[in-house]
Write a protein that binds this DNA or RNA. Sequence first.
DNA 1: TTACACCCCGTACCTCGGTACGGAGTCAAG
DNA 2: CTTGACTCCGTACCGAGGTACGGGGTGTAA
Lengths: 150, 150
Amino acid sequence: MRAISIGQLAKAAGVGVETVRFYERKGLLDAPPRKESGYRQYDADAVERLKFIRRAQLVGFTLKEIQDLLALRDDPDARRADVRERAAAKVADIDAKVRDLLAMRASLTTLLATCEGDGPASDCPIITAFRDEGRNEHTERSCEHGEGED
Amino acid sequence: MRAISIGQLAKAAGVGVETVRFYERKGLLDAPPRKESGYRQYDADAVERLKFIRRAQLVGFTLKEIQDLLALRDDPDARRADVRERAAAKVADIDAKVRDLLAMRASLTTLLATCEGDGPASDCPIITAFRDEGRNEHTERSCEHGEGED
DNA sequence: TTACACCCCGTACCTCGGTACGGAGTCAAG
DNA sequence: CTTGACTCCGTACCGAGGTACGGGGTGTAA
């Protein structure tokens, strides 16, 4: 099953055919080889790449940033200082995102735990693991409805 | 120093004045009280809310989703089943994002670790590290979000 | 060979999340 | 009082990230 069509690729990655062509135009996907007819021929690797793009989008990276990430991943000479620097910067970006997500998660699980009245569901290890490296204070609200901006 | 102007609010949260008004129109920020002159008067709480919106955006939530998150946070009766359900669903969303981010992070740090010195770039396992993270649908909503060995 | 789904390309169009006017009133300093 | 920064509101416009034609060619199974 080497060489799949654009339709099969799109389906495998859960996107539309038009989107695949759009990504190609934007440079996120390389132009694949073509059949005599002009039909694009993809391999399984393209599926992974496409899935990666979608996941990266879900966590807030722009297509431009995703291009950078893919470039890092594909760079044939990863020892170059600038590549390492960009990779390190991306790691920092990711850490910031994870911190923010975990802060949000903590708020929500606190909400759930408190309002379920059912015991400490907030002993989730990942929360405690990351919690105290967070620098930003966060408005943790409980069930008490002391709300209302006024 | 209660009651800050829209300009001070915007500056405090690192956004533009127009953006604040835009969020108000969209329902992400409540319409604040006004002075006689019609000038909006915000309090410190609004700063937090605005910062939260920005952080949520950075990790890929849409304004609509952020509205939901804020609604959960502000809900005066968090014991209602549907509220808890939506909160749990958001936690699941967050977990999925965190998983994806940690997978990306792992790939990048592997790149950094491996390619730091003087090994040939072709040995860099980042390419293989990316390639098969089994993409399961995210249906779980508990604290166990086994990152797995990836 | 005819039918029907799939692919080609280009262009137009759409939503989301803002940004930028522009003409008016407000407020604090000088 | 004047000046300049800030605010009001409405409307127009913008870039990102797609989505939808439309008119053609292709591939395959009955």
